[in-house]
Write a protein that binds this DNA or RNA. Structure first.
Length: 924
RNA sequence: GGGCUCGUAGAUCAGAGGUAGAUCACUCCCUUGGCAUGGGAGAGGCCCCGGGUUCAAAUCCCGGCGAGUCCA
């Protein structure tokens, strides 16, 4: 780290009379104004010094602190920007949740590709860190949901070779520290007590010097100076073992924990009491937690002690509890009884805030992605509520936080929570029954429930081991929960799968070619154009033709490529596929049109028109779905086609027939309104500011300018081709829906001619069915039901008759031959009937005390042998021998067996041999 | 995106190649002055759908549909 030591010699530190020291306990270097200071000030080197002794002049609520921070930076020439959603996958596809304010600007702004929305800027960014989930409530300072307040400045080196979206230096390390220092001073902090610890930062492929800001034992901020990137040839080796080198861009990335600043201003025992006191009060009240003054005092002292310890995971908390109890002079059990319900309450408040953020930002619970994370948090919260005895409905609790956070879609959020809680209740019920029967089974055997069952219960049925323990205890069964339970589960998910990285061979061939001019954006209705063939590349099959300009749309955004022809005076070649690589459009053709030729391009107009209809229709359908189902609905994927298209929507319930009809109605209304479909190329940040991230339904495009498509009130970032007016779509018909994942519904629909065709096909099916039933189409359902009922009735009647027939047969008559066999009569008969009838007949005969050997040649040769009680003939063996004679096999229990074979010809002979076979078996 | 589990009577579930089962609910009868209850009888199944293997598939294999769950 010494490599970066020089980075910390700031003029600001010098001017302000700071000295650099090394902490004798942890060895970290830090800067302080206080020459007498020894340690770095951060736990465990020092204790919290603000609990009951706030470090700022005034007490601030969460909202007040946020405002104080943002306006301070506004006063110091920063632009305040609105926070981004917590669902980071709304604008980037490499992460799920927003975990820091800098996420808002990655990767395009930090790399210098696009400019920041303002420079410098300040923001208070809601974040969610799931990693800390186990610590929440227990350590007094961990929260899963938090706001990272920040000021950012984006700088680019003056001497940089490449062009960046921002240039020059806004400010760098000195000014950053100065701003932080000034803010602390203005808040009334004793700045002599503030330490700045050197702590180089590495993460996500970037690195740089960083400073932790510690005050009264609490880390209030981290100032990161991102200026290096991972580089195999880099000259700096940092703590992750990789080498790094300096970048052309360098970014001030700060993080001030809103919750911690609020806490510091209040000096409450835990952070939770500082940030949502009303909710904590409500929950305590609801759970019936009521402490005497003495107990409250004990809790406060315990909180302070646990805060002072270096606790980074729950195991430590448990271990530390003995210590703390000891120091307080109470028993560990006593302390636990007092503190644990509080810990649950704290966690519930935090989790509800997390859920409010997630669901408020449109995350729909699911078994995948962010939806799964939301589901996990929700279930955990529900368990905590049940555990501590909070009986207020969860949707109400989440709503309390959603209201605080100012979400407008609170009804939807509540609806989602209710649906999810109900789903969870069902899962628990199902699981409970499962565990009960399992527990009884093992209790009877006197064995503990084995691990394999336990893992199975969790992995396949979502039942936590502690729940198994609880239920098993009631049934009197033991459970062996291994300590490493969750890693055993992980082992079950074989991780050995080879990650097959599809390494498309990087085509360097096109590097020198100019960007192909995209005519299809100029006039989306035209299909004919002229161009010059710039180059032709031979492929395994066919050619890649590069033109100077083209009307052919390359595959992208879920829209398939155009097809068509390229013609010269001499020849016409077929374009079968079109791809784009680094702005160069490749026309895959069957023949070589000739480099340097002038070509006349003709796009298959009918196909393109259908694709355009479907593309615009996709926008219309998603807009209609949002109108019908709610604003949380988002596109999870789409594929356009010629005959039909499909769109995947995030929604928390199955789509009903009513939903679909309504979506169809709204969609077709938009079609009938025949409004213009328009495109524009606004600046990215302006577009985001005006329309929000709902723009990115179909993915996140790169670049400074993005293309927006307006269809009615719907606005989406989109690179596809569209019809000119919604009326050009013709009509939209939903063909089918399916649930592609939990929380993701796929709608397949057709537009234009395809919609008509699809409707006609479906009608044909109905007409045909009506024709077969010889009724009119509207009468089909009723008639079908009647037929089905009658069919079932007849089946039963036939069953019945077969029984009667069998009894009649057994009563004698027919041409059955009877043989005497050691005191028992055996009946051998051939009745060409199905297995059911054979069985019934054989049963009827053996009920009369006779052995039955019945054969049938109806489908193959089949036998049934039935032996009455107390007769020592093994039916299975008899059938086995008989079946062998017809080239097959058979078997069954000793009193009733079935068998057969393909050789019908040999059936009669086999039956003739039956008495001998019976004799053999009897003698055996 | 991947793994795993499950689809059988109205409900909850057994059955794991060889005759489709239990419990509750339902209908009727008996016990009772009536109710709780108790006793008995009965009705109710395209064993999710489609292929395959087999003499024989609810059962085994493949595919589809539906549901659940764990992980990234």
């Amino acid at each position: 780290m010494s490599e970066l030591a020089d980075e910390y010699r700031l003029e600001y530190f010098e001017e302000e009379g700071f000295t650099r020291k090394e902490c004798p306990t942890c060895g970290n270097h830090f800067w302080t104004r206080d020459e007498t200071r020894e340690t770095c000030g951060e736990p465990p080197c020092e204790e919290y010094d603000f609990i009951g002794n706030p470090g700022f002049d005034e007490e601030y609520s969460l909202e007040e602190m946020r405002e104080a921070f943002l306006s301070f930076f506004e006063d110091h020439d920063h632009d305040r920007i609105d926070p981004y959603p917590v669902a980071a996958n709304r604008w980037r596809d490499d992460v799920l949740l927003t975990q820091a304010s800098i996420y808002d600007f990655q990767p395009l702004v930090t790399s210098g590709e696009t400019p920041p929305p303002a420079n410098p800027l300040t923001v208070s960014q809601p974040c969610i860190r799931m990693q800390d989930i186990d610590n929440v409530g227990k350590t007094g300072r961990h929260t899963m949901a938090f706001e990272m307040m920040a000021h950012h400045a984006f700088n680019a080196r003056e001497d940089a070779d490449a062009e960046y979206a921002y240039e020059g230096e806004v400010y760098w390390k000195d000014r950053t520290v100065e701003l932080c220092d000034t803010l602390l001073e203005e808040m009334g902090a004793d700045i002599a007590d503030v330490t700045y610890i050197e702590d180089p930062w590495v993460g996500g492929g970037n690195a740089g010097p960083a400073i932790e800001v510690i005050y009264k034992g609490l880390e209030l901020a981290t100032l990161v100076f991102m200026c290096m990137e991972q580089d195999p040839d880099g000259e700096y080796e940092l703590k992750d073992g990789n080498t790094y080198s300096y970048m052309d861009t360098y970014v001030v990335d700060t993080g001030y924990g809103l919750e911690r600043w609020t806490w510091m201003s209040q000096g409450t025992p835990t952070v939770y009491e500082a940030i949502y006191p009303e909710m904590i009060d409500f929950l305590k009240d609801n759970a019936g937690i009521d402490h005497t003054e003495e107990e409250a005092d004990l809790v406060a002292r315990a909180a302070r002690l646990s805060g002072n310890l270096d606790i980074d995971d729950v195991d430590d908390v448990e271990a530390a509890r003995d210590d703390i109890a000891d120091q307080l002079g109470v028993s560990t059990a006593e302390l636990r009884d007092l503190v644990e319900p509080l810990e649950d309450v704290y966690a519930i408040a935090d989790h509800c805030r997390t859920l409010a953020y997630m669901l408020g930002d449109g995350i729909v619970p699911s078994n995948v992605g962010t939806g799964y994370l939301a589901r996990m948090v929700l279930r955990r919260t529900k368990r905590l509520c049940d555990n501590v005895g909070v009986d207020a409905p969860l949707d109400e609790l989440v709503d309390m936080q959603a209201e605080r956070l100012g979400y407008e879609n609170r009804d939807t959020v509540r609806d989602i929570v209710r649906t999810e809680v109900e789903k969870y209740r069902e899962t628990l019920e199902r699981g409970g029954r499962r565990v009960e029967s399992l527990a009884e089974e093992y209790a009877e055997k006197g064995e503990p429930i084995p691990r394999a069952e336990l893992i199975e219960l969790y992995d396949s049925h979502g039942i936590q081991p502690d729940m198994v323990e609880e239920i098993a205890a009631e049934a009197g069964a033991d459970v062996d929960v291994p300590d490493d339970f969750y890693s055993l589960v992980a082992d079950r998910h074989d991780t050995s799968e080879a990650v097959e990285e599809m390494t498309e061979d990087e085509d360097a061939r096109f590097g020198d070619l100019p960007e192909t001019e995209k005519l299809y954006y100029d006039d989306q209705q035209r299909t004919q154009f002229e161009a010059v063939v710039l180059d032709v590349f031979e492929r395994e099959e066919g050619y890649d033709v590069v033109l100077d300009q083209t009307m052919f749309y390359p595959e992208g955004g879920g829209q398939p490529a155009d097809t068509g022809t390229l013609s010269t005076d001499d020849t016409t070649v077929e374009v079968t596929d079109v791809q784009i690589e680094d702005d160069v459009i490749l026309h895959r053709t069957d023949e070589d049109p000739g480099k340097g030729e002038f070509v006349n391009g003709q796009v298959d107009a009918a196909r393109r028109r259908q694709l355009m209809r479907h593309h615009t229709a996709t926008h219309v359908v998603i807009h209609a779905a949002r109108e019908v189902l709610g604003d949380h609905v988002r596109q999870a994927g789409a594929q356009k086609g010629v005959d039909s298209s499909r769109i995947d929507l995030r929604h928390y319930e199955r789509l009903t027939r009513t939903d679909i009809k309504e979506i169809e109605r709204v969609a077709n209304e938009i079609v009938m309104e025949n409004t213009a479909v328009t495109q524009e190329w606004p600046d990215r940040h302006e577009a985001e500011a005006e329309h929000g991230f709902d723009l990115y339904q179909g993915g996140i495009p790169p670049g400074e300018q993005i293309r927006l498509i307006h269809v009615d009130e719907d606005v989406q970032a989109c690179g596809g081709t569209h019809v000119a007016r919604t009326g050009d779509i013709g009509s939209i018909k939903v063909l089918s829906t399916e649930r592609v994942q939990d929380g993701v519904e796929r709608i397949t629909f057709a537009a234009g001619g395809a919609a008509l065709e699809a409707t006609q096909d479906k009608e044909d099916a109905l007409y045909e069915a009506a024709d077969i039933l010889d009724v009119s189409p509207p009468a089909v359902p009723e008639t079908a039901e009647r037929f089905f009922e009658e069919w079932k009735d007849r089946g039963k009647r036939i069953e019945d008759l077969k029984e009667q027939l069998a009894e009649a047969r057994a009563g004698g008559g027919g041409d059955a031959s009877e043989v005497e066999l050691d005191g028992t009569t055996a009946v051998v008969d051939r009745i060409d009937a199905d297995m059911d009838e054979l069985r019934a007949t054989a049963n009827a005969i053996s009920e009369d005390g006779k052995i039955a050997v019945i054969g049938s040649g109806l489908s193959g040769a089949q036998f049934v042998v039935s032996v009455p009680d107390g007769v020592g003939v093994n039916a299975g063996e008899v059938v086995g021998e008989l079946a062998a004679k017809v080239g097959g096999g058979g078997g069954g229990p000793p009193d009733f067996a079935q068998g057969g074979g393909p050789d019908v010809e040999a059936l009669d002979d086999a039956l003739e041999d039956a008495p001998a076979v019976l004799q053999n078996v009897l003698n055996a």
